[in-house]
Simulated assay, not measured.
Amino acid sequence: MSPRITRARAAAAAVALCALLAGCAGNNAQAGPAGSDNRFIGGAGDVQQIAPADRKAAPQAAGATLTGARASLADLRGKVVVVNFWASWCAPCRGEAPSLEQVYQENKPKGAEFIGVDFKDAKENAKAFERRFKVSYPSFFDADGQIGLAFRDVPPNAIPSTLVLDRQGRVAARIIGATTYSKLNPVVGKVLAEK
């Protein structure tokens, strides 16, 4: 690979990292894509729902979890999947963790799965976070940020961010910034009700 391509990839990764880190610092979210079924207002934690015709496929992300097991979004196709981007060093992530776990517990029997993406974190700190907040769903260990970068077509844009994937593996909704039970649960319910 040429040095020019390597530098270009490094620059793109740095820009994406800055955008993700800005979310944890409290910046407002950006407007959603044109054509989306927009309840998205622009502030952190607002919900952007995407009409089925405008949905983009999520990447086929795969990798090791914090426990060392192998996980893949492709293995979850056919289920509604909530993908939460988080890090132990992110204060809003600590605030939303109980809500995410509650929505997971209530919707797992209905066919929903959750998977976290622990972004740019130390593994022991991330494991301590999961123990402290009793997180029972798996998380990819994304120390180098490659899984986060794979979502470039519908980027999370911030830490924390949450994506809801429909049964076809397409992004049906995005929440940039910390979420709550009252924001996430109705979205998951709506996507679960789709046929």
Rank of each mutant, 00 (worst) to 15 (best):
M1H: 12
M1V: 11
R4D: 09
R7T: 10
A8Y: 07
R9F: 09
R9I: 07
A11D: 13
A11P: 03
A11T: 13
V15Q: 15
A19V: 11
L21D: 15
A22R: 11
G23V: 00
A25M: 10
A25P: 01
A25F: 05
N28G: 12
N28I: 05
A29G: 05
G32M: 03
P33I: 12
A34C: 05
N38T: 06
R39V: 14
F40L: 08
G42Q: 07
G43D: 15
A44I: 13
V47A: 02
Q49I: 15
D54M: 15
D54V: 15
D54P: 07
R55V: 03
A61N: 10
A62D: 00
A64G: 12
T65H: 02
T65W: 09
G68E: 10
A69M: 05
A71N: 00
A74S: 12
A74Y: 03
D75N: 09
D75K: 13
L76G: 04
R77T: 10
V83W: 01
V83K: 08
S88V: 05
A91W: 13
C93M: 03
R94Y: 13
R94A: 15
E96G: 09
E96T: 06
A97Y: 07
A97T: 09
P98I: 03
L100V: 08
L100G: 03
V103T: 01
E106Q: 13
K110L: 11
A112Q: 05
F114A: 08
I115N: 10
K120P: 00
A122W: 10
A122G: 14
N125G: 15
A126D: 07
A126M: 12
R132M: 13
S136L: 12
Y137T: 09
P138W: 13
P138V: 07
P138Y: 10
S139I: 01
F140C: 00
A143P: 02
D144P: 04
D144I: 03
I147C: 09
I147F: 03
L149H: 14
A150M: 11
D153P: 14
A158K: 01
S161F: 09
V164K: 01
D166F: 07
D166H: 07
V171S: 08
A172H: 10
R174N: 08
I175T: 06
I176A: 14
I176H: 02
A178M: 11
Y181L: 07
S182Y: 11
S182V: 02
K183M: 02
K183E: 00
K183D: 01
L184S: 00
L184N: 08
V187L: 05
V188G: 02
K190R: 13
A193E: 09
A193K: 11
